[in-house]
């Protein structure tokens, strides 16, 4: 697992990237334990990042002086109590928001100083997002939902169709392309959402509690898909309360009161 190039998604049966051994973790976690230590060239480099929210008279410090490096191909989980700043951090990593101070470098681009349009471009090309509530568009089929992520890329129609089919096959849903979200189980919906996240071939996949709305068997389903993607070299950053998910990570971070701590051991 040393390749750092963006993953080349190919048609593969779901079984080809099911559970991997624990040794993967030890393989990737080469550097000494500690925040900011990445095995290879850092994909993300956060320096002294703070994010404060102003609500009426109150000032809420969601993140305080966070420094962090995440290498390409890493599988990082972020844990912590509610209100600890996990979603806030994920928004900064996902180019949904800018820090109040500090810098967020993603592959040479400083997201802290980027324009709205630049952030939009980064989201469209570099970042795949998976949400706790799946966030599929209820009126659209699985394939159409996946296609939504290709809308900003301006690809030719044929290429789009190929990519959508590939992505859905990749998450094991080749036979569900014409199903509406309501006709799919929670696990299947989340797999559609993952297909939507990877169809653009992003550098990094960000997930906020991707298994939070799923029961155990569905959670394992999703976990298997995520690990398969990781095995193909995709960088994964997953906010989770689920220790079963965290156990599979190369590196585990904990966010509490706006400060980040490595708890990988």
């Amino acid at each position: 697992m040393t390749e750092i190039a963006p993953p080349a998604l190919t048609k593969k049966p779901l079984t080809s990237f099911t559970t991997t051994g624990d040794e993967d973790m030890t393989m990737i976690d080469t550097g000494p334990a500690g925040v900011g230590d990445a095995p290879t060239a850092a994909l993300y480099r956060l320096t002294d990042v703070t994010r404060t929210y102003r609500q009426k008279q109150r000032v809420i410090k969601a993140l305080t002086g966070v420094g962090l490096e995440i290498g390409a191909g890493e599988f990082v989980t972020i844990q912590g109590p509610t209100g600890g700043g996990k979603s806030t951090l994920l928004q900064l990593l996902g180019a949904l928001d800018r820090p109040s101070s500090g810098s967020v470098m993603l592959a040479g681009t400083d997201l802290a100083n980027a324009s709205d349009a630049e952030l939009g471009r980064v989201r469209a090309r570099e970042i795949g997002f998976v949400f706790q509530g799946f966030n599929l568009i209820p009126t659209l089929t699985a394939a159409e939902n996946v296609d939504m992520a290709l809308e900003p890329l301006g690809l030719p129609k044929a290429e789009r169709a190929t990519r959508v089919a590939e992505a859905l096959a990749h998450v094991g849903l080749a036979d569900r392309t014409d199903h509406k979200p309501t006709e799919l189980s929670g696990g299947q919906q989340q797999r559609v959402a993952i297909a939507r996240a990877i169809v653009k071939r992003p550098r990094v996949l960000l997930a906020d509690e991707p298994t939070g709305n799923l029961d155990e068997s569905m959670r394992d389903e999703i976990l298997a898909v995520l690990e398969g993607l990781c095995a193909e070299g995709l960088t994964l950053i997953v906010v989770t309360h689920d220790s079963a998910v965290a156990r599979r990570a190369h590196r585990r971070l904990r966010l509490d009161k706006g400060t980040v701590r490595d708890i990988t051991r």
């Binding site: 709205d116 939009g120 471009r121 795949g128 939504m148 996240a197 653009k200």
Partner: peptide, 16 residues
């Protein structure tokens, strides 16, 4: 709200 937020999050421009 969530639908449009999601579209923006996956890269749709405001104009789109």
């Amino acid at each position: 709200t969530r639908e449009f937020g999601t579209l923006k999050a996956i890269g749709w421009s405001n104009g789109r």
